[in-house]
Each structure stands twice: as structure tokens, then as C-alpha cells.
Amino acid sequence: MKKILLIEDDTALRENTAELLELSDYNVITAANGRLGIEQAFKEIPDIVVCDIMMPEIDGYGVLEALASNEKTTHIPFIFLTAKTEHKEIRKGMDMGADDYLTKPFDEGDLISAIESRLAKSAILSMRTNGASINLDVVEDEDTPRNLNQLKNYFCDEGTIANYKKGDTIYRAGDHSNNIFLLLKGVVKTHTMDDNVKELITGLYKADDFLGFTSFEDNLPYAESATAVEDVELVSLSKTYLKDILIKSKDVTLELMNLLSDNLTDIKQQLVRMAYSSVRKKTASTIIQFAEIMNKNTSAPLRISRNDLAATAGIATESLIRTLSEFKKNGIIEIEGRDIHIVDLERLKFIE
């Protein structure tokens, strides 16, 4: 019987949840605050921890940090169960190494499903650590994604969904990169600062794009920041789980390598354009790029800040505004407030 440590300061919720888990054939240990939870974790070494965030003495983040820093408990799957739903809180917990995040009031089935999923993944990783590679292949044969579409479905099934408003930061340069993201809705920009503290947009990502790749071997920090250009919904998955999939599925690994190679080619082309193209060419190409990503066609009005357009094109905002005025005067685009409407796409494409 698997052992669950439930840390929750709300007495009624703690008792009701413990009863639910016991009826599902789990051995449940409870703690009323973070300090007691840490003591119980070190004493009992549970198979999984379900923990509230806002608690007296030591909060959930403190519990996670304490368990993650001790070699006896660092391997234990950790699920946050909390009323806090802001994306900053979700990102903080996941960046610290939490495996999942459920919000109150929660569905009983979702809690059981999350626990079963994390226990199964933990067992698989434990088998790998102990050298049980032969049985491991058999265990994951049916569940391991075989192509990128299945991998995206896996993200949605096993990952943590979060929503961000336009302008919200998803991650910052220097943050620990424990997760990979799949964008479900909206547009995200990645960006950095040059030596003159001028923003440079390094990439634009739309629905169905992966985001946030860094080394799988080292917990390197992000080299750039990611911000929502419009309202965004995305799902995050631990790099540990993704690495395990890539080890087992050569097809997924090859498809992902091709995808990342294409992304690298796009970045190189952007750098060449920024280095050698005229201001007019940079502006035209950037308008088309944003229009295709944000609207999926070039006939709909494009609402994007002039600063973002300039940062992507690699030119000064003042130069961009002057060029937009020129395009409008020549009948290539129309401008109404912040909206840009492409009138003559062919002329825009062939601007030099």
C-alpha cells in the first residue's frame, strides 16, 4: 500500500481528503502545518506528498525546498493542493520542482488521477535508476509517445496548465529551467537585452509550439525571458519526464531535433535580416511575421505594440514609426490606432 503524506492546515479539508485517499487504498499520514509535515516526511519517507501552500510556521514552498534539499526525500513526487491560482504562484512551485498543481475546490477524480500518475512515473524513474532497463522498456511500451502529436497529447495529459494575461512574464532570464512548455493558445515572445539595455526579441511562438528548451543534462538557467504578447494558455512538463521519453522513443527524438533545427534556421535568418537588410525590409518582414503568427492570415488587422515590432526587427522604434508612415502613404498598409491592416501583401513582401 502506497504511503501519502497530506499536509493541510484546514482541519475539515485535511480529514475529508485523508478519508478519500484511504478509501482509494492509500496509507495516509497527515500534518497540520509545514513544520510538522517536514518532520513526518523525514520520519516516514512517504511515496508522495500532497501539500497546501499557505500554512502557518512553514509554507508549502518551504516544505518543498526542505524535502528537495535532503537526499532521503528529494526523489519524492510533490503535488501542491491550494486555493492560489495566479500563474506566478504556479510558476514558482513548478520552477522549484513540484510535479503537479491542483487548485481548490478540486475534483476527487483529478486528485486520484494526479497521484496515480506521479506514482507511476516515480516508479519508472526508480527502475531506471536501479538499472532495470529491460523491464522499463516493457512497462512504457504502450504509453510512450511515438511522434510529436502523441508527445503534445502527453503534455496535455500529464503537464500543468497555466494561463497568462497579455504582458505577463512566463519566465525570466536567469530562472532555473526545470520545465518545457507547450503553447496551447496565444502568442509568446522570447527576448533579451543587448549591451545598451535595448530589448531584442529572439523568437515568436504560437499555439502548438514548444518553448523553453535548455540543456537536459544540466539545470542551466534560461538565457532569455518569455512574455505573453496576448492572452496565453500553456502547459508545462518537467524536463525529467521529457528526457525519459526521448531516451525511449527515437522517432520522437528525431522529430524534435528536426523541429529545433528548423527553429534555429529561422533564428539565423532573422539575424541575417537584422544585420544586412534595410530598415524598410526589416519592417516589412516583421509585419508579415507577426501577422502570420497572430492571425494565421494576413487579411485580419494586426494589433501589436510598436516597441515589439521594433525589437523584433532590430531597429529603433522611431525608425519603425517613420517607415510605417511611409508604407501607409504608399497604400501598402492602413493604420487605425494600434491596428495595422495589410492592404497590399505582394508589395510588402518584395520591399527592399
Rank of each mutant, 00 (worst) to 15 (best):
M1N: 11
M1H: 08
K2I: 03
K3G: 04
L6S: 11
I7G: 07
I7F: 03
R14Q: 14
E15I: 04
N16I: 10
E19N: 13
L21Y: 07
E22W: 00
E22R: 12
Y26I: 10
I29S: 14
A32V: 15
N33E: 14
G34N: 14
R35L: 15
Q40E: 15
A41M: 13
K43P: 10
I45C: 12
I45E: 10
V49R: 08
C51I: 10
E57D: 15
E57K: 14
D59S: 08
D59V: 08
V63G: 09
A66D: 03
S69A: 13
S69Y: 07
E71K: 12
T74R: 15
H75R: 08
F80H: 11
F80P: 06
K84R: 14
T85G: 07
T85A: 15
E86W: 08
R91M: 14
G93L: 07
G93W: 07
M94K: 05
G97Y: 11
D99P: 10
D100S: 15
D100L: 09
L102W: 14
K104F: 10
E108S: 14
E116V: 04
A120S: 11
K121M: 12
S122N: 10
M127N: 03
M127C: 01
R128M: 00
T129S: 05
G131C: 01
L136Q: 03
L136M: 08
L136S: 02
V139M: 08
R146I: 06
N147A: 06
L151N: 01
N153I: 12
Y154T: 00
F155R: 02
C156F: 12
G159N: 03
T160H: 11
A162W: 07
Y164G: 06
G167P: 06
I170D: 01
Y171Q: 06
A173L: 01
A173G: 12
H176Q: 13
S177M: 03
I180C: 06
V188R: 05
K189I: 03
T192A: 04
N196L: 11
V197K: 15
I201F: 02
T202W: 04
Y205C: 03
A207C: 02
L211D: 04
G212Q: 00
S215R: 10
L220P: 04
P221K: 02
A223W: 01
A226W: 00
A226Y: 01
A226Q: 02
T227N: 01
V232P: 01
V235R: 01
L237V: 04
L237W: 00
L242S: 03
D244V: 00
K250A: 08
D251T: 15
V252M: 00
L256A: 05
L256V: 05
M257G: 02
N258E: 11
S261E: 04
N263G: 14
N263W: 09
L264C: 02
I267C: 06
L271R: 09
V272A: 09
A275K: 13
Y276E: 10
S277G: 10
R280G: 04
K281M: 08
K281W: 08
K281N: 13
T283W: 05
T286S: 04
I287K: 06
I288S: 02
Q289P: 02
E292I: 07
I293S: 02
M294C: 11
R303D: 11
A310E: 05
G314Q: 02
I321D: 09
F327P: 10
K328G: 04
K328N: 15
K329L: 14
G331P: 07
I332F: 10
G337Y: 12
I340C: 09
V343L: 15
L345M: 05
E346N: 09
R347P: 09
E352M: 11
